[in-house]
Amino acid sequence: MSLRVAAAVAAAGIVGAVIRWSVATQVDDNWALLIVNVMGCGIVGWATARHERTRHRGPVRHGIDSTSRSVAGPSPGLTAGFCGALTSMSALALQLARYLDDGRIATAAAWLGLTAAACTAAFVMSRLAVMLSYGRRP
């Protein structure tokens, strides 16, 4: 583990967590979680696509083997640190668990569906934006 990379992940993780907390203080908890999760997925999509285009001149072809287990991305600080800490699976799971515990299955399903759709859209669209912007370059 490089100390510099670890420091970047830790510092960016603090920034991500502070932003998530700040958004939660301004907006209703459920919406705040959706906003930060979508933001994080969009940034990760942008970062990974940009990394693939600039470093590999094409999609990264990782296999499922011992040499490709690390998270692909231009910067672990940005992807694992900032985006990882900005988004939160535990908060989403707790949100869903509370609805299910109260018997509000439809509400839980709606939040899960909305989160999954919005996060997937953010990830895919930011990747597409990078692909298109690089495709237009000579």
Binding site: R20, V44, G63, I64, A72, S88, M89
Partner: peptide
Amino acid sequence: ATIVGTAGLGALTTVSGIFPESARLMRA
């Protein structure tokens, strides 16, 4: 709750990290 829950466990878990990993698994 703020320190352990919001900061520690919030930063420990991730939604954004799932996407690049599942995209990599999808190629397999």
